[in-house]
Design a binder for these strands. Structure first.
Lengths: 229, 229
DNA sequence: CTTGGATTTGACCAACTGGTCAAACTCACG
DNA sequence: CGTGAGTTTGACCAGTTGGTCAAATCCAAG
């Protein structure tokens, strides 16, 4: 929708005036220049830093510009608006964010597949806490800019994996539970370490939470899911 | 700290000029009037609504004023600043928020005490989702206005309950695990239903998440904590 | 029903914010 | 090394935001 609008506007501009922004330039189907690639990446990196720390409304274009080492008008040369930066960032990250879940393999050993998924997800919290907080910020506030993407990408993927879980439970490979709530629990437990990082670290008094977390979660899910018998 | 500063300023005012705000009035130690009680409550209720939905920076004083049915200058008669509203709201809610944890009784049956705590906490997410999101918003963004309060109130309380958990584990009453991570897991799992409400509901396709959540969490912690024997 | 303190508000302000624009500058390429 | 497309920026703007203030209104106690 947003992209559609931009394309429309850019189309008008390219017909009327000389190119004033990246979009009108890009519409000519040239490959991105060295500078375009570098700056676009720098902006998205800066946007991640600032949006994840302050949320969409709490972030300012000036902050992002500073963080990226560019001037504000220069940012707006590469992205037509603050909204566009956010949207671009989101759509670039969502795919990666869902990768650990995609890897769950119906052919693998059920318990080990789930435990491995938990560890992958935990590793994401450790390695990409800003990404986690970016999504957390957005969803806590009702996901006004993300719900569409979620209901497209996440919904289908979850449905697919839930079916696998149900098959495993029906076959007695893992202890039965509500499969959706099982997935929610994995997200909640792993993302908590990134999203509530300051709180967790404050309460751990210097010890790195990620030292004990892997074993804790492994134990939790092993006890929960190992079939009785 | 903030409160201290305000008291200082108010003291100066009361000495210098006629009363222009609530603080200078209150310093005279009169009991709050009917109107003061009503409006203060209305403002805090509105502040909860708005702050929890948009975060501190995302919320505007105008929004809160509208929600409370008062004019903006009138709000600032009752609270000297947006910051003061937020701080007042926080300190009023934090105590209640921690109540479920306080109730954990060292004398009770270990497993049942923990399971009951989980259910109380889950009930909080169901009954007070705005409060949960208020804290979530703040902590995700680094808790710049709350970390002091947390490290005072929460830290001590956690230490106390961790000691109880450790005693129970040592006595073989519950399956041993990392006690702090156990508490983190309870917070993460229960608050997830409030904080990620939109996502959870989107994925549950109309079914109320709180229908199955109590049983899911009961099962999870029972399997995890029931000592082997 | 008067009066002095409590409450309310319209008008206002300075700082900030997202975004624009024309002019200047840089760079790849012929 | 000149040239035109690509890139950068200072100056600017309109709308928003937190907060102020003097004047007006309300209200409870005498």
């Amino acid at each position: 929708m947003n992209l559609g609008e931009n394309a429309q506007i850019a189309g008008d501009l390219s017909r009327a005036t000389a190119s004033k922004d990246l979009l009108s330039t890009m519409l000519k189907d040239r490959p991105p220049t060295r500078i375009q690639k570098k700056n676009r990446a720098a902006i998205l990196e800066a946007a991640l830093e600032v949006f994840s720390a302050h949320g969409f409304r709490g972030a300012t274009v000036d902050q992002i510009a500073n963080q990226a080492g560019l001037s504000k008008p220069n940012l707006l040369y590469y992205f037509p608006s603050k909204d566009a930066m956010f949207t671009a960032l989101m759509s670039e990250l969502l795919d990666t964010w869902l990768d650990p879940m995609r890897e769950i393999d119906a052919q693998g050993d059920p318990l080990e597949e789930i435990l491995a998924y938990v560890q992958r997800k935990l590793q994401m919290s450790r390695d990409f806490p800003r990404e986690s907080r970016l999504f957390a910020n957005e969803i806590v506030q009702g996901a006004p800019r993300m719900l569409d993407a979620l209901s497209t990408d996440l919904r289908g993927l979850l449905e697919e994996k839930v079916a696998i879980l149900e098959a495993w439970m029906a076959a007695g490979k893992i202890n039965p539970t509500h499969p959706k709530h099982l997935m929610f629990s994995i997200w909640a437990l792993t993302q908590h370490y990134a999203d509530f990082d300051v709180q967790v670290r404050m309460l751990m008094e210097g010890e790195d939470p990620f030292d004990a977390a892997p074993e804790f979660l492994e134990t939790l899910y092993r006890r929960m899911l190992t079939p009785k018998g």
